[in-house]
């Protein structure tokens, strides 16, 4: 695109982002502050993810962007078009064809490979945010690996509801050291982060934090021995492709209580329907 550098950001900004990303990879799960730039879309629309993608993206990459699993929603379409215009890269909706996948709040059902990088858009990078509003305090808690407060929160839910009642943004321990917010992916997706072959990068634009999980790194969802972590899923098959094990969206179809459950991952669902006899 004329008048802009490749992938929109200037080289100085990319170097700053790249240095932060390298530190993030070296300290899995630790949040690195960075000088987030104003982007041509509002906070909350993936400015952190876009900046991370812009810093890693190259001419030879193929980009996939999903929003809650879907390739065809406004956020996914505009970010994909943004990079098609500013970087001229190839885009795809097929998980297996992509080299970089930017995601808002889902991990694709198709297993990722060593050749891929997944970039998460993160609204709130601090997992202790609801327990301790002071950044000064949470930084110290991370330094001391002092995560008792989070276990107390989980315990209170067990005491009150009889189970750990967190369905998304379920806190994880990374590499046995840092507590990390996995971004608001459903708890269903948490097990996919554990020892994933792909590099996982996280960008929070408004909160100006970058963090990462290298390939094959231990990612454990917090739980108790007698109340183990469970990945929840609606007890239905996909109404379109019949998948029994994918994460489902509930779609209201009329005003008389009609509803259907369909795969949240549109590419996974479409591929299954194409392959069906």
């Amino acid at each position: 695109m004329k008048g802009y550098n490749f992938a929109y950001l200037d080289e100085q900004t990319k170097r700053m982002l790249r240095r932060a990303l390298l530190k993030a990879v070296a300290i899995p799960g630790h949040q690195i502050p960075f000088a987030a730039r104003e982007m041509p879309l509002p906070y909350g629309w993936g400015t952190g993810g876009i900046q991370v993608t812009a810093a890693v993206l190259g001419r030879c990459d193929t980009l996939k962007v999903i929003d809650q699993g879907a390739d065809d929603t406004t956020n996914a379409v505009s970010i994909r078009r943004f990079f098609a215009r500013t970087a001229g890269v190839a885009t795809t909706t097929r998980t297996a064809h992509a080299t970089i996948i930017q995601t808002r709040h889902r991990i694709p059902e198709t297993a990722l490979t060593e050749a891929q990088i997944i970039v998460y858009q993160v609204p709130q990078p601090e997992p202790l945010y609801r327990l301790e509003p002071s950044r000064t305090e949470t930084r110290r808690m991370h330094a001391l690996s002092e995560y008792g407060a989070m276990h107390v929160r989980l315990y209170e839910q067990v005491a009150r509801y009889g189970q750990i009642a967190i369905s998304y943004d379920y806190p994880v321990m990374v590499n046995g050291r840092h507590l990390m917010a996995p971004s608001p992916i459903p708890a269903f997706d948490n097990p996919k982060m554990h020892r994933m072959p792909a590099l996982q990068l996280f960008g929070a634009g408004r909160e100006k934090r970058i963090y990462a999980v290298p390939p094959y790194t231990d990612v454990a969802s917090l739980d108790f021995e007698d109340y183990p972590f469970r990945a929840g899923r609606a007890p239905h098959a996909c109404a379109l492709c019949g998948a029994q094990a994918s994460y489902l969206d509930e779609v209201v179809t009329d005003d008389r209580g009609g509803r259907m459950f369909v795969c949240s991952d549109t590419d996974y669902c479409a591929s299954r329907r194409e392959q069906a006899p």
Binding site: F6, R18, L22, V56, L57, L199, A212
Partner: peptide, 19 residues
Amino acid sequence: DPVHDAQASFRAVLRALAR
């Protein structure tokens, strides 16, 4: 080619630290 060579080199360094 400052832009694309730096990008390619960064990806190599990123991969080096990630693997």
